[in-house]
């Protein structure tokens, strides 16, 4: 009888978090399904989409530029240190090209935008939730998913690839700066190697990753904001959760997408 009680307690402590986890998973799936449905059915709000694109894209440019240029620069340094001076010249351009386009530009842009935009989205929508503005939208016959969520999701999917393209160029330029001005390699050779080695699949990989990351960031921002409750503290939690969740998912998906495309 006694052991029966222990077992019950054990299952109970194990069960509660599990139940909560499964509940959250169900809630998230429902949110995703609704978000997707409302993103592809009218009415659309092009003005709100444009506003989000400018918000995410334009204002994220400086941080994306800054992170990718230093990423390109540090990769150039490391490659030079790793290869003996013999062979480094052609290796640098190639390593910078591949690591920036495939990995670094999408990951850095994703993480930077998650911090800036994911947090802002969660805070804005969370505030709208706890101040009943989302209910107010409904009472004015406007679907909050179409009005708030859809423009943000689309903006994320559209803008992140553009940011990554720009990040690619700036990152490669960073590598060039180090190779030419610090390591004194021949600029013409560097450019020639870069152009010769440039492959569509490298750029595509980065773009696909970026689109997925953009979706994840907007989704996590909207979801956490939408479900937040309990005043300012709830909004604060939603903001933190949005950034942490999207950062983790970005890193995991980054691995999975690389694995899918390059492991064969």
């Amino acid at each position: 009888m006694q052991s029966h009680k222990y077992l019950e307690n054990f299952l109970r402590t194990l069960g509660k978090p599990l139940v909560i986890f499964i509940y959250r998973l169900g809630e998230l799936s429902e949110f995703i399904a609704k978000a997707l449905y409302h993103s592809i059915t009218p009415p659309f709000y092009p003005k709100l989409l444009l506003k989000q694109i400018i918000n995410i894209g334009f204002y994220s440019l400086p941080v994306v530029a800054l992170t990718t240029i230093f990423a390109g620069m540090v990769i150039a340094l490391q490659t030079n240190a790793g290869f003996s001076s013999y062979g480094a010249e052609s290796a640098i351009a190639q390593v910078v090209l591949i690591s920036v386009t495939r990995e670094l530009a999408p990951a850095f842009a994703g993480l930077m935008v998650a911090g800036r935009i994911g947090a802002a989205m969660a805070a804005e929508i969370g505030t709208m939730r706890v101040t009943e503005q989302i209910d107010a939208l409904s009472t004015l016959s406007t679907n909050p998913f179409k009005y708030l969520v859809a423009p943000r999701l689309w903006a994320g999917v559209i803008v992140l690839p553009l940011l990554v393209l720009i990040g690619d160029i700036i990152g490669i330029f960073g590598g060039y700066l180090v190779a030419v001005y610090q390591l004194n390699f021949n600029p013409a050779n560097y450019i020639k190697t870069t152009v010769n080695e440039l492959q569509a699949i490298d750029v595509y990989t980065g773009i696909i990753k970026a689109a997925v990351f953009g979706f994840v960031i907007a989704l996590m921002g909207c979801y956490n904001g939408y479900k937040s409750k309990g005043g300012a503290q709830g909004v604060g939690e939603a903001t933190t959760n949005a950034v942490v969740a999207s950062s983790i998912i970005i890193l995991i998906f980054n691995y999975i997408i690389t694995d899918l495309i390059f492991t064969n």
Binding site: E124, T131, E132, Q133, A136, T139, T142
Partner: peptide, 28 residues
Amino acid sequence: TMGMLFQGGALFDSLSVWENVAFGLIEN
């Protein structure tokens, strides 16, 4: 066919006063 005055106002703070008032007229 319903209208609601919310306990806390629930005005859209991203919009101006007139856009708030005209929201249902414009969107709906």
